[in-house]
Nucleic acid binder design. Structure first.
Lengths: 195, 195
DNA sequence: CCTACCGATCGGTAGG
DNA sequence: CCTACCGATCGGTAGG
């Protein structure tokens, strides 16, 4: 009985997790609910006992990831540390999420445009808020002479998107560890390519 | 007569151009040929006088962009310049293509996975070849002590993907010019955020 | 969770 | 380039 309940509660998670893999592989628009059902191991109609719509799955994936970012940046802002360390913490956050749940991060990055209203607008607002807070940390870092003077938006977006490739390249069988990956990316972004 | 012929030759281009905008906006899988026909201003069936299939349009977009990259890197390799300047030239190439044809670059980045075989494999091979050549330039730059020692793949992918955000942010109405954008991104990647 | 099925929409073709 | 239409597949529902 208890195991039955647990199985049922877990099924929704299984569906969302498999959906993340599927959407990452094929793209949201090209993935069908029948594809998803096959991966989960049930008939297509059965999926709908656990979720309301294909849309809802995308929402769940995108807002979970967005929530992760937003909740962590508050902590980083409040830490008593240098701006260099705050930016390092943000880079670290993005790499960690990417390594821990590459599929969901990839889907959020690639398919958030397929969100339907009003969720699309809410997502955009969340993202803009996050970006504004990150931009402010860079701005303050420049003001405190920790960072070189430069266009704040350019710096922020360059850092944010520079981590996206990890999705395509990194897998646990690589000879490089997450720690090394993080160190190399952070060094490159903070100190540059040049010797 | 001559104008009729020209009109016909141009129509295929119009279709591919509109498709790039459409695919960028909605994603390849979520965009329909009826959407595309409406943008072009004809009935859905009429599209097929100019192209064979939806697939073919995606192929055309992805391989044109891939071709741009591949043809330019040969020139860069053969230039008698420092490795720093070669890397700068590659960054410049990516920014220029992104600014000139943001839609096609975005579609290539986001939807190449929807290519069907054998084009998918060919595309992957092209991309791997390009990456290998870029990686070698970084490797040689490190050997010549122009660049700091680091994992070559990490450096290459970080640089390549760091330019992707331009698609989402840049538009000609921004107060920043393409030249300034390029200078800021190049500086950040070569010298780093830190003062 | 399944069988059976719906209306809508898809990519694409025939024929003019 | 259009009208008319095809078979396949889509997301989703009814009923058990």
């Amino acid at each position: 009985m208890a195991s039955n309940l647990k199985k049922k509660a877990g099924k929704r998670e299984v569906i969302i997790k498999e959906a993340a893999f599927l959407f990452k592989e094929k793209g949201y628009g090209s993935a069908s609910m029948r594809d998803l059902a096959e991966r989960v191991g049930v008939e297509a109609a059965s999926i709908y006992s656990h979720i309301k719509s294909k849309d809802e799955i995308l929402e769940e994936i995108c807002f979970r990831i967005a929530g992760e970012y937003v909740s962590h940046i508050s902590k980083i802002e409040n830490e008593k540390s240098s701006y260099t360390d705050k930016v390092k913490a943000i880079i670290n956050l993005h790499i960690r999420l990417m390594v821990e749940d590459a599929a969901s991060v990839a889907v959020t990055n690639n398919d958030w445009k397929s969100l339907s209203e009003p969720k699309l607008s809410i997502f955009k607002t969340l993202r803009k808020g996050y970006e504004a807070r990150f931009a402010r940390l860079i701005e303050e870092g420049i003001a405190k002479k920790e960072f070189a003077p430069m266009n704040v938006s350019v710096a922020m977006f360059t850092i944010l998107s520079s981590i996206r490739w990890v999705e395509l390249w990194y897998n646990p069988e690589r000879s490089i560890t997450e720690k090394e990956l993080e160190k190399d990316i952070t060094n490159l972004l903070l100190k540059g390519l040049k010797k």
